[in-house]
């Protein structure tokens, strides 16, 4: 992971910044330069709320090599109040307890590390509500 690539995603990965179209109100995560719905090019920056609803999930048993030590791990898609959907790992919960429709919250975690010596890619994962 080249550091610049990690750094430029920080607003999205660290703070869940999304772009809200100033004209039609559509929300995009990550940001876009042109609205997919109406073609407008001006946006407000908003933060996606911390709790989302799980709409589907899987448990991955054969990951890419950088995720080998975490396998098997759950990956899910959550839908948030603002209308955006986000894919992330579902952690701190046994696979058998994961249910579609459940509320999950965003937590700050290491998502990927570039080996033992490279940069640490921080970001969001989904965890059960406490």
């Amino acid at each position: 992971m080249f550091p610049a690539r990690v750094a430029r995603e920080m607003p999205h990965r660290y703070r869940l910044e999304a772009a809200k179209c100033k004209k039609c109100g559509a929300v995009f995560f990550p940001h876009r330069l042109i609205c997919r719905e109406c073609g407008h090019r001006e946006f407000d920056t908003i933060n996606v709320s911390a709790i989302g609803k799980l709409i589907s999930y899987t448990v991955i048993h054969t990951p890419a090599s950088q995720f080998k030590d975490e396998s098997p791990f759950a990956l899910g898609i959550c839908e948030f109040l603002e209308g955006v959907k986000i894919t992330a790992q579902v952690v701190d919960i046994a696979a058998a307890d994961i249910k579609t429709g459940m509320d999950l919250q965003i937590e700050f975690r290491r998502v990927q590390t570039d080996g033992h010596a490279g940069v640490i890619g921080y970001g969001y994962k989904f965890v059960p509500l406490i």
Binding site: D69, E70, V91, R109, R110, V111, Y122, K125
Partner: peptide, 9 residues
């Protein structure tokens, strides 16, 4: 701490 947690997280 699980492997994805550290002092920063």
């Amino acid at each position: 701490p699980p492997p994805d947690c550290d002092a920063i997280t």
